[in-house]
Design a protein around this nucleic acid. Structure first.
Lengths: 168, 168
DNA sequence: AATAACTTTCACTAAGTTTTGAAAATTCGA
DNA sequence: TCGAATTTTCAAAACTTAGTGAAAGTTATT
C-alpha cells in the first residue's frame, strides 16, 4: 500500500470512529492528520489536505486546542500560525478522558445527588424503585469517577503499569 | 422534589448523556425509563411516558434489545409484549463495553494492522512519521483490547473487585 | 377463516448539525 | 498609519439523522 492511500484510509477511519463517539468528523480528521504529520501544519495546508473550507478548519482547530489535543506552534520568520498534535497516544487518551469526565460525568453526578432526595413514601413501589436505581447508578458513577481520576493523573504512568501487570 | 419531577429530570439527563456518546436520545430515554420502573412496560406505556410515536418506540426498543440492554417479558394472560431493562448497572456497563468493542475497536484494529504495512523508504520523514503513529496507536489499541476483554468477561466480578482494591 | 389486537416497516417530514464562503476583524511590518 | 497577510465570525446552504404516522404485516382468539 502506498503512503497516500494509507493516509487517506487512516483519515477516514479516524473520522468515522470520532463520529461514533460524538466528536465531529472534521475535528477527528484534523486531529488524525496532525498525528501522522512529522511537522506542524498551517491552516492552508490542513484545508488542502482535507478539502475543507477555511471557516471549518478554523473552528475545528480551535476546538481541538480547547480540548488540549492540538497546539499552536510559532515558526520563526513565519507570519502564519502552525498547528501540531500531541503524538503520545497515551497522553491523548488521558486528556480526552479528563475532558469528558469534566464535561459529562461531573454534571451527571451533581444531578444524581439531587435526585436521591426524591420525596415520597418508601412503600410506594415507584418511589422505591426510582430510589434504588438512582442509588445504584450513583454508586457506579462514584466508582467510575475514582477510576478516571487515577487514570487521568497518570503523571508517571503508574496506572498504565498497573494495568499492564494486572491484564497482561 | 416530587417523583414526577425527579423522573422527568432523570430521563432528560440520561438522554443527553447518551447523545454525547453517540447513542440517540430516545434510545437512551427508553432505557432510562425502563431502568427506574419497577415492572415491565408495554409499548403503549413507553409511548405515553415519553411522548413519542409508535414507530419510534418500536425501532428503539428493538435496538436496545439488540444491544442486550432490554428484554421482552411475556406476561401471562396478556397479548401485548412488555419490556424490561437489566437493573444491575455493572452488567449494563459491561454489556455496552462489549458491544462497542465489537462494533468499533475490532474493526479499527483490523484497519490499523493493514496500515502498518505501508510501503516506502524509511528515510522519508513522512513515511517514518506515519509508521510510528500507526504503530503507537496500534499498541494502544491492543492494550485497550486486553483491558476491555478482561472487563467484559467479569463473570465473577473479579475485575470490579480488583479495581476497587486498586483505586479505593 | 374472520377478526381484532398488536407489531413492524417505510416514505416522508422535522429537527439538528456541519460546512461554506464572503465579509469583518485583527495583526504585523514597512 | 497604511495595507497586505492572516484569522475569525456568521448567516445561509447543504447535509445528516431522528421521528412520525399510516399502511402492511403478523399473531392469537373465536
Amino acid at each position: 500500500m502506498k503512503l497516500a492511500e494509507a493516509k487517506a484510509q487512516f483519515l477516514q477511519s479516524w473520522g468515522s470512529l470520532g463520529a461514533q463517539w460524538g466528536i465531529n468528523r472534521t475535528m477527528a480528521q484534523i486531529h488524525a492528520l496532525l498525528l501522522i504529520m512529522p511537522d506542524p501544519l498551517s491552516a492552508d495546508e490542513i484545508m488542502q489536505e482535507l478539502n475543507i473550507s477555511r471557516g471549518n478548519t478554523n473552528m475545528n482547530v480551535r476546538e481541538l486546542i480547547n480540548w488540549g489535543l492540538v497546539e499552536k506552534v510559532l515558526v520563526p520568520g513565519e507570519r502564519r500560525e502552525f498547528f501540531t498534535a500531541e503524538k503520545d497516544i497515551w497522553k491523548v487518551a488521558t486528556h480526552i478522558a479528563r475532558e469528558r469526565k469534566k464535561r459529562e460525568l461531573d454534571p451527571i453526578m451533581k444531578t444524581l445527588n439531587q435526585l436521591q432526595e426524591v420525596e415520597g413514601d418508601q412503600k410506594d413501589k415507584y418511589v422505591k424503585s426510582f430510589r434504588e436505581s438512582i442509588q445504584n447508578i450513583n454508586r457506579f458513577a462514584h466508582q467510575t469517577d475514582k477510576t478516571l481520576n487515577a487514570f487521568t493523573k497518570a503523571e508517571e504512568n503508574w496506572f498504565y503499569n498497573t494495568l499492564v501487570k494486572v491484564f497482561k
